[in-house]
Design a protein around this nucleic acid. Structure first.
Lengths: 125, 125
DNA sequence: TATTGACTTGGAGTTAACTCCAAGGTGTAT
DNA sequence: ATACACCTTGGAGTTAACTCCAAGTCAATA
């Protein structure tokens, strides 16, 4: 699979994908004899994982650490689990914040819906 | 209430609070005759709102726009509702992504818990 | 084989949201 | 009245995560 195809699949730019590989968010991708990237199924799973984690704000630094540990083999299984648990705690914390903000937005919007009808907004901001 | 007290209440730095005021994330705060900020109850509600919205990734730019509309008075009620709905859609989208990432992390971690016990990680990354 | 469009690299530039700094003013305790 | 901690400003600096660029290579088409 070419870089372009992978980009379309995950809606990212070639620059981002090359950046991920350069810094180690994903392992190095195989090339054709000409030096052009040819993504394997495994490579694509790494990309999918990176995109998912990044979309929840897991820092690039943490993904790099995970890939590094992964490449060191089975002796790092515990370390990898710990890293994932750390990431999960962080994502959960943010999830809670997002939910709290949703609640606040829903409340405010309901007040505004009323105000749009009546022309009166009971003082709140 | 002094800037220090507000900072402690919301766990932010004076620099951040002054930055919020400078760019318009919150309206201008009253000062003592000496020029020192003295936060009112209303000011604190604005800060609380800003902190909540920012914690869910609502952009500073959007909060500035909201404050600006608010200061223009009741004629902007519809515009403010629309802005809030836009923010809500964005927060909901991210909430979904965060939930998807939680699911993935939970799955991966459960695989790792097993692997830590057995020493074997069924191929996945 | 010549053109054309996508690919490569290393490195510089951008953006959002802070974060820090220097120089100076304020205000409470000795 | 003098020290001392805390406040003020304008402006510069930092950080994470891309994003762009120039100069060159590769490969499918006419």
């Amino acid at each position: 699979m070419t870089i372009r195809e992978v980009c379309e699949k995950f809606d990212l730019t070639p620059d981002t994908l090359r950046y991920y590989e350069r810094v180690g968010v994903i392992p190095e991708v195989n090339r054709t004899k000409g030096g052009i990237r040819d993504y394997s199924e495994q490579d694509i799973k790494w990309v999918e994982n990176a995109v998912c984690m990044r979309s929840a704000g897991v820092p690039v630094e943490m993904l790099i650490e995970y890939v590094k540990l992964f490449q060191e083999g089975d002796s790092t299984i515990t370390a990898r689990r710990d890293l994932l648990m750390e990431a999960r705690a962080e994502v959960q914390k943010n999830l809670d914040k997002y939910q709290a903000t949703m609640d606040r937005l829903n409340y405010k919007i309901s007040r505004y819906e009323e105000a749009v009808k009546t022309g009166i907004l009971r003082w709140d901001a």
